[in-house]
Design a protein around this nucleic acid. Structure first.
Lengths: 138, 138
DNA sequence: TATTGTTATACTCTATAACTATA
DNA sequence: TATAGTTATAGAGTATAACAATA
């Protein structure tokens, strides 16, 4: 464990905190919590089961029931049975949910563009993607 | 708004989610929530007021009262009056709080080291630091 | 008058344990 | 027997509104 490793950990902690604050503000503009926005954007383009969502969000599966309930009550998500396994329920995004999710993603990208220098953004994205892949694989 | 900007936003969202999961697991090992660990590590080396903590954590000031209460009940933080302004209360970390905070920081760094390639870590830290500074300034 | 921290309230997030239906 | 989702419960995080003490 070198000082350089501690520096990297501190930097990533700081980044996590900054994004947390920014993303919370943006989610709230759409009337959502940070967790609801994260779930909504996790469903876009997929149809995950409840268990898969729990793993993806790093929380207990019992939480997913309520979170999907609240988002479904607003018409952003819907439940759909899995014909292959009648225990499984898949989560699908509605038209309105897709729209809200896009609003949030766009707002986030816009805020980033407003803050980060123009040059090097593409390289930054590539770097971050490799880090995400490495963390996800571990 | 280019596709490259959207890619960067997606990558940073993904990084946020990965760190969130990892950091939550590590905090829970010390019996803390993610938010408690974040607050504890924000106090280390400072003596912020309640209002400053609210800004730093991006939440309403009314939340800080309860969060500091719960951490103080465990002996990790303490309140201290500000002689210069009797409305202000500053938060100081205890010896035990410092120890727990270091455990969490070390565990986080260790998990990162286990997942990220050895080469380029120093450059990565520098890159992330500039991003954090840019986000914080905006 | 304005600001700092607090309290009351309501809702959301979270994990644990016990449950039902299905595999 | 094991797994997917649910319910009940308890504690924690969150914002809004109203408040007391201080500036």
């Amino acid at each position: 464990m070198t000082q350089s490793d501690r520096d990297l950990a501190a930097a990533l902690s700081g980044l996590h905190r900054e994004i947390n604050v920014l993303y919370s503000v943006i989610a709230r503009r759409s009337g959502l919590t940070l967790q609801q926005a994260t779930l909504l954007c996790s469903v876009a383009g997929q149809r995950p089961s409840f268990g898969e969502l729990a793993v993806l969000l790093g929380c207990d599966k019992t939480n997913i029931t309520g979170m999907v309930d609240r988002l479904a009550r607003r018409g952003l998500l819907a439940r759909e049975p899995d014909p292959a396994d009648r225990r499984v329920i898949r989560v699908v995004i509605t038209e309105q949910g897709r729209s809200v999710g896009e609003d949030i993603r766009d707002a986030f990208a816009k805020e980033l563009v407003a803050r980060l220098p123009r040059s090097g953004r593409r390289e930054l994205a590539a770097t971050v993607e490799t880090v995400v892949a490495a963390l996800h694989a571990g």
